[in-house]
Design a binder for these strands. Structure first.
Lengths: 333, 333
DNA sequence: GCGCGCTACTAGCGCGCTCTAGTGCGAGTA
DNA sequence: TACTCGCACTAGAGCGCGCTAGTAGCGCGC
């Protein structure tokens, strides 16, 4: 920076003004400074800038590698953050890299706010986090914790999916849940409520699962094993999310079960995957772009007024009907 | 930090020593400092640390959102970087966020080294980058540029896939290429060479494409349209990567073409997607973990000796046969 | 001629840390 | 006693910026 100032024949302060796009420099000088900086290859050091300014204007985003829905969200976070004048730092949780570790990294970089995509951590930990930094949880409700919350109305989404299946004549509808995964509890609850509402209480069955393909594959094996022992297959499965649905589809189709002729499958998320299946996956769409926008806005607004109470945004999901759901097979009638 | 020092009754310098895990503090003091720090909730500010130290010990990783193979790589980068004592900063390119922008962000954070996953930028830009910072390009060769390079032996991978198809009796094998995508040029070249080697020069056909599902879908439409005009379908397609293969599978299956009975499809990457298809995708596996390790190691080693020449790691890919490839249909005989 | 306000610019402190060059002290050695 | 050595610890400069307070110069009104 000193080099730029010297070469442009101005003070360092002026260079600073130019790079911050602040008033106080003539247009002519401005251009000269920028030209010189470009020649030297100068670029403001964000560490020093951050240190001097005391504020980082940086939002840290924790996501889980392989969660395709998260990448959809990230894509939406960038532009909104930029619009509001914030930098974005990504930190991934992965096999061998815990969420805590990912979050610590963000905190160490002095992120002012954290956006956690589908965090899987203890509520206690999240509450503590919320007290230390502005925190937004996406997809996972943390009751009582000091964190903002963005999610889609899981209940509504599940209800739409269930109504769709019931309308198609399904009665034996099972739900593979997402274990402790974000949104799972509500989806499970709503599944049960829907079964009750349709008078199918006796048929309700929740199979413990997770938001992974593996979980879907396992469930497929379980159902097939049951069939081989003489039980009949359910006619429809509501999976915990798209990945689980995909795994299930794979396992079933491989064993000769035809979807949707023999069995219907519905996912959740409308992630990239959903249009990929040859038959297309019927699923519940969460608007990733809108959710990302809300998350960033919550973070920024609470940064402005730290005393304000945590807020909650509930976005309406929408059922997207594709090829994996169809009329219930007659055998079930 | 000053607070911690005061409360523990030592100087700031000592606190610094403790937090850097350096010799020069008695065990007793060490414990006391750590305890006090924990009480206050102190955590070293990485910006200030970075600024003071002059080195960031940070590796910046540029990736493309939605490229599933990239997330596989990221998963491998973290542990290796940690092992070597480096921090990792992620920056994503996405719709509306160019690679340049993503890289600028990393540079602004004073990353010492850049790992670019399948960069799509101009060779000139990359060369410039390579002169300014230690740069490793994964999957994309940049001839003449001052960047390290990690990739798998595209030629070998394609050859294995082609041999596999020819053995199954296929002759009309077309290739959907990946346009300017990383590795595409070599895959294309190797496809042509393989056709020649098997005496199928006359049948060789390259359809321009990209490394996306959309490209696969389009190709599917194209082939179907040709069939409807009376041309016969090829018996096998070698796609540019898994995503393209998936799109193609979807388009074909939806239109009643049965894979692999009517047509075989082979992908490239063995990304997460590949096991997902109900029938399983025959594909060429690139070992993401190993590639990630090499990339990090290249970066760190060249950081130690900046004068050393750029290096190249070529890893052997491996054909993984799954359900999407089968014997050529008899109609083609 | 003087004060006033305005624009264009500068001096220099301080952000929170690291690191070099020390100081003080007790034990070991001649 | 006088010295050296090693250990535990400290003083203080400096990393590259942002920012506050200030200055110089200039036109303007009375």
């Amino acid at each position: 920076m000193a080099d730029v100032a010297a070469k442009a024949g101005v003070s360092r302060a002026l260079v600073s003004i130019v790079f911050r796009n602040q008033p106080g420099a003539s247009e002519e000088t401005r251009q000269r400074v920028l030209r010189v900086a470009d020649e030297i290859g100068y670029r403001p050091d964000s560490a020093a800038r951050l240190l001097a300014r005391g504020r980082s204007r940086t939002i840290g985003v924790m996501f889980t590698v392989h969660q395709t829905f998260h990448t959809d969200l990230i894509e939406g976070i960038y532009p909104e953050a930029e619009r509001l004048g914030y930098d974005v730092l990504l930190s991934a949780a992965a096999q061998g890299r815990s969420e805590e570790k990912a979050v610590e990294a963000l905190l160490g970089h002095r992120c002012e706010a954290l956006i956690l995509l589908g965090p899987d951590a203890e509520p206690g930990y999240l509450d503590e986090l919320g007290k230390r930094a502005v925190t937004v949880s996406v997809s996972r409700r943390v009751p009582g914790a000091r964190v903002d919350f963005v999610h889609s109305a899981e209940g509504k989404g599940v209800r739409q999916a269930m109504d769709h299946l019931v309308e198609l004549g399904h009665r034996r509808i099972v739900h593979v849940d997402g274990g402790r995964g974000p949104g799972s509890a509500e989806r499970r609850r709503s599944y049960r409520a829907s079964m009750r509402r349709h008078g199918l209480e006796a048929e309700a069955r929740v199979i413990p699962g997770a938001h992974t393909e593996e979980s879907g594959i396992e469930t497929g094996r379980l159902l097939l094993a049951e069939r081989d022992r003489g039980q009949s297959l359910p006619t429809a499965v509501l999976a915990g999310n798209d990945r689980c649905a995909m795994g299930l589809l794979m396992a079933l189709t491989r064993s000769g079960v035809e979807v949707p002729r023999d069995l219907s499958v519905v996912g959740y998320d409308d992630s990239h995957l959903s249009h990929l299946m040859p038959i297309g996956l019927t699923t519940v769409r969460q608007d990733a772009g809108l959710m990302a926008e809300h998350a960033v806005r919550f973070a920024v607004e609470r940064l402005r007024d730290p005393e304000s109470e945590p807020r909650e945004a509930v976005l309406d999901p929408k059922l997207v009907v594709r090829g994996s759901s169809g009329p219930a097979p007659e055998t079930s009638a």
